[in-house]
Each structure stands twice: as C-alpha cells, then as structure tokens.
Simulated assay, not measured.
Amino acid sequence: MNPTLFTLTAFIAWTLFLLVLMEAMRSNLVLTRQVAPTGFTPDNAGLSPFMQRLARAHANCLEGLPIFGGLMLVALVSERTAVTDPLAYAFLAARGLQSVTHLASASATAITLRFTFFAVQMAIGAVWTWGLLAAA
C-alpha cells in the first residue's frame, strides 16, 4: 500500500474511531441514565468539556476529509501519487496530533499547538493542490 492510500485509509479510520469513541461514551451516559437518549446535541453541549472537545475533534476530521481526502483520491485515481506520497505521512501525523491535542486540553497553549498542526495540514494541502494542478 503506497503512502497516499495508507494515509487516506488511516484518516478515514481515525475519523471513525473518534465517532465510535463518542458514541460509546454517549451510550454509557444513556445506559447509566445520566442523559436521556434525546438529550444530545451535535456539539455535545451540556456534557463534559472532554465530550465537547471530542465532538469538535470528530467534526474537524469530517470537515477536512473532503478536502484532504479528496486531494489524495485525485492523486490515486489519476496515478499521480508521486505528488502526495512524499508528505502523506507528515499529513497523517499532523492530523493525529491535532486531534490528540484537541482531546487533551483547551488551554491557550494547546489551542496554539492545535492550530500549528492544522496549519501544517493546510500547507501540505496547498502543495498537493499545486502539484496535482501542475501535473494535469
């Protein structure tokens, strides 16, 4: 499996993992009668700060998947993974670190660090876009 295909698959798997974690925690809250089954909002408002950060980390992945996943998919379908392969693992690391930092804390330092990891992803996305357009 080349780096682009691995990264796309791992990005999808990470997004799914965050969803499963959130739903397992929500299920526990329902089963222990701490929250009614209808008591959830998409952003987990009213729940613990961790649950709110988890909802946001998952949403961040969903927001980025069409853009970054789309670029990787374009590279795969057009057989131009030479454009995305060199930075694929760096992208995946930045995405994972952004999510983990999001889950760990809402401090000013964590927010700055999280944005840094996101900025790395944006830069990689720009490089990929330019490279794919230039190769077209």
Rank of each mutant, 00 (worst) to 15 (best):
T112H: 03
G70L: 10
P37G: 15
T41D: 03
G46M: 03
Q52I: 09
T38V: 08
Q121T: 12
R56N: 09
L73G: 08
A134G: 05
R95T: 09
A59P: 01
A93N: 04
A45E: 11
L54E: 04
C61R: 13
T84P: 08
H58R: 14
T84Y: 04
P86V: 05
V77M: 01
N44F: 07
A135Y: 01
A57T: 05
T129F: 02
A94V: 10
F50L: 02
A123K: 07
A59T: 12
F68E: 06
I111W: 01
I12Q: 09
T32E: 00
P86S: 04
L71Y: 07
M22Q: 12
V74Y: 08
D85R: 10
A94P: 06
Q121D: 08
L133S: 05
A24C: 14
D43R: 13
M122Y: 09
L113M: 14
L16H: 05
A110M: 13
T9E: 01
G125T: 09
F11T: 15
F11C: 00
R80E: 13
L62K: 14
G46H: 05
M51A: 10
F17E: 08
A126L: 15
A94K: 15
T38A: 14
L87K: 13
S27K: 12
A10H: 12
M122C: 12
